[in-house]
């Protein structure tokens, strides 16, 4: 009984089963081979499990590399804008102009600049998420109350100490929310990035299955893409609970 109660109370499992039920309903209503049944899809999934893992690893690696580089550039850049009012005033219009442009539109430019390999795919994802990261971090710095800086000044804290005890911990929640938004956008853009000049990646798998009219395989790719997102979000939750325990309490 306890196990059943635990399963019932797990939002994740409830959410997943609701999705399966919704999918089955659509399948029954539409009655077309374009939307295969969940059972047929999952049966097929286990037959191509090795391939799916390979494609997933390719996609995960691209997203991880892109997110790591975005963090390495985005955090210092965001802090720099947040602490320097003049620089912020100078660069904010540029960021506000670039931010809403659909970055996928730059894909041809990246293909020409960085070739057709992994580099252009990773650069596209970086280009898409880095502005989100910079703005989140900058806003995090700007939201630090003036009295917190006064506290540090009253204790005669050095610049290095101000970063260690005040600025870095203060921006951590914003970094995590920036990352959370970035994961969604990265996975969506991955689909476009993996549609050219590659033979691995979940985006490639979905489009290749579509051209082969293998809809079970196509849906396997969609499901896996969802699981990759879930994996990233859960990993982020764990990291957030570890690095920002005050926000979790």
């Amino acid at each position: 009984m306890n196990i059943i109660r635990k399963i019932g109370s797990s939002q994740l499992i409830v959410g997943f089963f609701s999705f399966i039920v919704f999918w089955e309903l659509i399948n029954l209503l539409v009655q077309t081979h374009t939307i295969p049944s969940p059972l047929a899809t999952f049966t097929y999934l286990f037959t191509i499990l090795d391939d799916l893992i390979l494609h997933s690893l390719g996609s995960i690696l691209r997203v991880l590399v892109a997110m790591s580089i975005s963090l390495l550039i985005g955090i210092p850049a965001g802090i720099f804008l947040g602490v320097n009012k003049k620089i912020n005033r100078l660069f904010s219009p540029f960021l506000y102009y670039i931010y809403p442009i659909p970055k996928v539109a730059f894909l041809p430019v990246f293909m020409l600049l960085f070739g057709l390999g992994n580099m252009s795919k990773i650069m596209l994802i970086i280009w898409i998420i880095i502005f989100q990261m910079i703005l989140s971090v900058r806003d995090g710095v700007l939201q630090i109350p003036a009295s917190h800086f006064k506290v540090m000044n009253s204790f005669a804290a050095s610049i290095k100490q101000q970063y260690r005890f005040l600025i870095i911990p203060a921006i951590l929640p914003q970094v995590f929310s920036g990352l959370r938004i970035s994961i969604g956008i990265s996975l969506a853009s991955l689909f476009f990035a993996e549609n050219y000049a590659t033979t691995y990646g979940v985006g490639y798998l979905i489009m290749s299955a579509w051209t082969k009219m293998n809809y079970e395989e196509m849906f396997c790719g969609i499901i896996v893409l969802g699981f990759i997102g879930l994996l990233f979000f859960k990993l982020l939750d764990l990291l957030e609970a570890h690095f920002t325990p005050w926000a979790a309490k």
């Binding site: 109350p145 009295s147 917190h148 506290v151 005040l166 203060a170 920002t244 005050w246």
Partner: peptide, 17 residues
């Protein structure tokens, strides 16, 4: 500085400490 302490009206406690 360093021999003076200031207690602020809004206390200035850091949420992460």
């Amino acid at each position: 500085k360093g021999s003076t302490a200031f207690l602020f009206q809004d206390l200035g406690l850091f949420p992460w400490q």
